[in-house]
Design a protein around this nucleic acid. Structure first.
Length: 562
RNA sequence: GCGCCCGUAGCUCAGCUGGAUAGAGUACCUGACUACGAAUCAGGCGGUCGCACGUUCGAAUCGUGCCGGGCGCGCCA
């Protein structure tokens, strides 16, 4: 719709250039927006105001000239010049209800576009260390990251989702030491307990499983415990596999899947880390000082240089990170998007600096980042900070157990990632009008119910039959519902472009709201007027389809009954 | 001290690539079920958009400086 209008306007401009009103195509980007106020029409543009200076005319005069230059068409019913020079467009009935036809034609793929043209994008998210259950922050990352993948797929990108597994380094050693301590009968209160040890209840379960010589099967491996509390390497290998299984189960409960789990240890095994360091050194971006090897990251915008190889010989954490991203680059991804918690913000400059230092033609802004702020969990008006299982934090599993997968997903994606999030357990639990998830799902279930009811009247009460009578949808409630359904493709492509899934959540609430108003104002099934009923049923079914498609982008189910 | 994010209705948040009278939910108040699902709808109340300058036809939106909150500033990850 917007696009069609934009085409008309650009033809109008060409006409004005041709007749000398305008000199040539000026470099301005006029906007076409949906109006807030129905008296302003359905769509409006600021074109005349933007061009006024260039044309040396007043915005309102120019607007009048533009309107005269618009070619004959079947879209615009009438126009208006308003305020300082806005051009308002009232679109025709047929043009408005065309969305319903489009929705029936495209079905499950309505809203999808081919903007990405099949180009490859890699999305990395969650990437939790295998040292404990996933917490609510990982949950937010999982919900947003997965929604991003779905949005990118819907806009024609070839998406590869990935979970980076930090199965090397100090924190894994601490994990192994903690499990070993438990296996040897120590508790976190003992003086001999490892200094940076993990204290959650799961450590106890893990130690017990190890002593019982249990076998764990995770996505990529199956491993049996040796059961020897003095074999630290064996404990470590078992602990990582066990926690991986634990995290897999959490992600499965959240319906999040990854195309690939990438192991940090593979970067050491494959010498990627060494190669990365060698290349940075060969390119002259490193120096030795105080027994350590430094990256001159200040050459690439960092506020200080960073140690790469510590005095004791090990690499700092960001070195394998750079190696990992070089690996991503070599795999040929057009774009790479990393979804992470904002507390890791400082790594961005470091990783990009390392990549620039490799001199392999990686663009400066590569990879892209989506950072999410912290999540606070509230219940009964107070903050929930602890879980039994993990000890010091609320887990993703806790949220799912408390409020269910759909509500968890929705609440975690409904807010802008840049805003801190307060997760209100009581609100998410309420099965009433307070809960936005149910509000949207209810609209979907309601359509399903009405369709069932209509079919009770006979086989000829299929919504599709209403497509022949769409011209009967004249009431304002029907009009504005059709109008918002027609916006869905723009909403999806906009959300994907800005990497902001919460746009979808807001849009779906509006759709549900328009539908409920429509439903309450008009009777959908009237056996005395089948044609009109069918037209309304078709509009309802189109609404259902948009709700289903939109909820799916957020990973939320669209129930046929509740 | 430096960097990033945030500050909009009592509460939770949209709007932020500048546009018309700043929106939604919730809370509170009035109404609507012998109709297809009232988990709904219609209406009302509620705001110096943190503050101050600036940019311009026009600023919640852009710039600068303050104030307040969060996160990060390690040879931890």
């Amino acid at each position: 719709m917007k696009q069609a209008l934009a085409n008309l306007l650009s033809q109008a401009l060409q006409n004005l250039v041709a007749d000398g009103t305008l000199v040539e195509d000026p470099k301005v980007t006029p906007q076409i927006d949906h109006t807030k106020d129905p008296s302003h029409g359905d769509l409006a543009t600021n074109l005349a105001m933007v061009l006024a200076k260039h044309a040396k005319m007043s915005p309102r005069d120019l607007a009048a000239r533009i309107l005269l230059a618009i070619p004959e068409n079947a879209i615009v019913e009438k126009t208006d010049i308003a305020g300082p020079g806005f051009i308002n467009f009232f679109i025709t009935q047929a043009s408005n209800t065309q969305a319903v036809n489009d929705i029936f034609a495209a079905g499950r793929r309505y809203g999808y576009t081919d903007i990405g043209q099949g180009k490859r994008v890699q999305v990395e998210f969650v990437s939790a260390n295998p040292t404990g259950p996933l917490h609510v922050g990982h949950g937010r990352g999982a919900a947003i990251g997965d929604a991003l993948c779905r949005l990118l797929k819907a806009t024609g990108w070839h998406v590869h989702s990935e979970f980076y597994y930090n199965d090397a380094g100090q924190q894994i050693t601490n994990l192994a030491l903690s499990v070993q301590a438990r296996a040897l009968g120590l508790t976190p209160d003992d003086a001999e307990w490892p200094e940076d040890g993990y204290r959650g209840e799961y450590i106890t379960d893990l130690a017990q499983a190890y002593l019982n010589k249990e076998t764990v099967s995770a996505a990529d491996r199956s491993l049996s415990a040796g059961g020897d509390p003095h074999n630290l390497d064996d404990i470590q290998e078992f602990a990582v596999a066990w926690l991986r299984r634990e995290q897999d189960a959490d992600l499965q409960a959240f319906a999040v899947q990854f195309d690939e789990y990438f192991l940090e240890s593979s970067l050491y095994a494959g010498h990627d880390v060494e190669t990365t360091v060698e290349r940075l050194t060969a390119n002259g971006h490193t120096y030795e000082q105080d027994g350590a090897l430094w990256l001159r990251s200040t050459d690439f915008g960092d506020d200080k240089d960073r140690v790469m190889r510590k005095r004791e010989g090990g690499y700092t954490y960001f070195v394998p990170d750079v190696a990992y991203h070089l690996n991503k680059w070599q795999r040929g991804f057009e774009r790479v998007i990393n979804e992470q918690g904002a507390d890791h913000h400082s790594t961005i400059t470091r990783v990009r600096a390392g990549l620039q230092g490799l001199d392999t033609g990686i663009p400066e802004g590569w990879p892209e980042y989506v950072l999410h702020q912290m999540v606070t969990v509230m219940r009964d008006g107070t903050e929930v900070k602890l879980s039994k299982r993990a000890g010091s934090y609320v887990t993703l599993r806790d949220l799912i157990d408390w409020v269910g997968r759909d509500a968890t997903r929705f609440f975690l994606t409904a807010r802008a990632a840049t805003s801190q999030l307060t997760f209100d357990i009581d609100l998410a639990l309420s099965q009433s009008n307070e809960n936005p998830v149910y509000y949207i799902q209810y609209a979907h279930a309601r359509v399903c119910s009405v369709k069932r009811k209509a079919l009770d009247l006979g086989e000829d009460w299929q919504p599709q039959a209403g497509l022949a009578h769409l011209d009967m949808l004249k009431e304002p409630e029907a009009r504005s519902l059709a109008l918002i359904l027609g916006r869905f493709p723009e909403v999806v492509s906009g959300a994907a472009e800005r990497l902001e899934p919460h746009d979808i959540a807001n849009y779906l609430r509006e759709v549900a709201s328009e539908f409920h108003s429509f439903y309450n104002a008009l009777k959908l099934i009237d056996s005395d007027d089948q044609a009109l009923s069918l037209a309304r049923l078709a509009l309802a079914e189109a609404t259902r389809q948009v709700l289903e498609n939109g909820l799916d982008l957020l990973g939320v189910s669209a129930p046929e009954s509740m």
